[in-house]
Nucleic acid binder design. Structure first.
Lengths: 225, 225
DNA sequence: GCCACCGTAGTACCGCGGTACTACACCCCT
DNA sequence: AGGGGTGTAGTACCGCGGTACTACGGTGGC
């Protein structure tokens, strides 16, 4: 028995899917999620085999919801459905960890067999997208990037809005110092360091100090030993 | 009308394929090639829409035959068929320019729809292979470092004791991925990722993943953007 | 046939990192 | 004089990261 969660913001669409799936005697619809965050929460509770995920949803979109569901680490597979066969969505969804990608104008049998494939651990890609996926894959294989451009030390725009103090903090972050170490060696309170760090992350668009370390290297604020 | 050339060294196999295809009123078998060089020559003469290509053939094998057929620059698409679902063959064939890859134990309908898809410009991949293909594809995306290059990666002594898998994990750590992301995109449990990370830190003498990121840069496992 | 290693996976626990919010002194600018 | 940016600092909270341990199937070496 394959258990399915339907994530779509359109009630009519959900109804259609539910009718189709319930007509199969090897499938059960565990529930319907009208939004991305609902999908994430319900997946954590119900552990469906497959989540039928629409991409366009209010709040958390299907891509991010997929990422979080996959990150839950359970066996739940995500099958992404969308109205259009836009590549960016497909690739973003697959990068997010989805097990498949189908367009909504697929035949009912195609959807059903797609769900069964995904549930059994296989992956499915809409026929019209497989070629582009392969092309992209093949192009990735022999990629040679010699880029030997020597750029003189000019201020990277990503660091433009940082204050001197923040740039100083970022430098020692890039050298791997913990907040406690920065606090001790720069003679300020750790809470102060945290304030600086948070502002640096916000200004540079980094989600955590790891990204900041990478940024420090990429901008040559710090250099490899 | 879809025209097909059958390239297979086994007469019985060719017969089976011919019977199946001729039973369809939208398909015609233009000819049968018992070897790779025959397939190349006959394709140049007959210009079929699709070549059904066996991989294992005497003389020129299916991979090389595919490469030469694609190099002819015509509309002919190559659909590779093999008995086994060996990855090397699949990837080699796709790299050679094939439009699809199916295993011989596929259902007749799957083969027929595969031929039609390929003839119409789409690509097909055997269901059981799609997942591996996606995995390989997704794993390629973040790693802009083609260590498949001619220069063998000079082994930094600090990385000497790492296994291949650990070096792989360290690479994506160096690119800033969280454990959850590594888990999702490499399709292993987060607990597995944690085990790997802990071993990497222990082996490299890093106290946390920040130090590992720095090490990855210093050893040129990853390079600044 | 056995053993070591590897990759996988799980659980339990704790601490650092990051957020959100507030606060205040200082400096510079208008 | 007022206001905005900066550097400092605090509290409370939560989640990710890391550790310690166990476990098991596969593989390769001896």
């Amino acid at each position: 028995m394959t258990t399915v969660l339907i994530a779509d913001d359109q009630p009519l669409q959900r109804f259609g899917f539910r009718m189709l799936l319930e007509s199969q005697d090897d499938m059960t619809v565990l529930g319907e999620a009208p939004g991305g965050s609902d999908a994430v929460r319900m997946t954590a509770e119900l552990h469906p085999d497959v989540v039928l995920m629409d991409i366009r949803m209010p709040g958390l979109d299907g891509i991010e919801a997929t990422r979080r569901i996959v990150a839950q680490g359970h066996r739940t597979r995500v099958l992404i459905l969308t109205t259009f066969d836009l590549d960016e969505y497909a690739y973003a969804g697959l990068r997010a960890g989805a097990s498949g990608f189908l367009v909504k104008d697929a035949l009912p049998e195609e959807l059903l067999s797609g769900i069964r494939s995904v549930a059994s651990g296989d992956a499915v890609v809409a026929p019209g997208l497989t070629r582009r996926l392969l092309d992209a894959y093949v192009q990735l294989l022999p990629s040679e990037t010699p880029h030997t451009s020597h750029t003189p030390p000019e201020p990277d725009p990503r660091l433009a809005t940082l204050t001197d103090r923040e740039r100083e903090i970022l430098t020692v972050i890039g050298q791997g110092w913990t907040n406690a170490e920065i606090s001790a060696r720069l003679h300020v309170a750790e809470s102060t360091v945290k304030t600086h760090v948070t502002r640096i992350l916000a200004k540079t668009g980094s989600r955590d100090r790891i990204q900041a370390v990478i940024l420090a290297y990429d901008t040559k604020l710090v250099r490899p030993a």
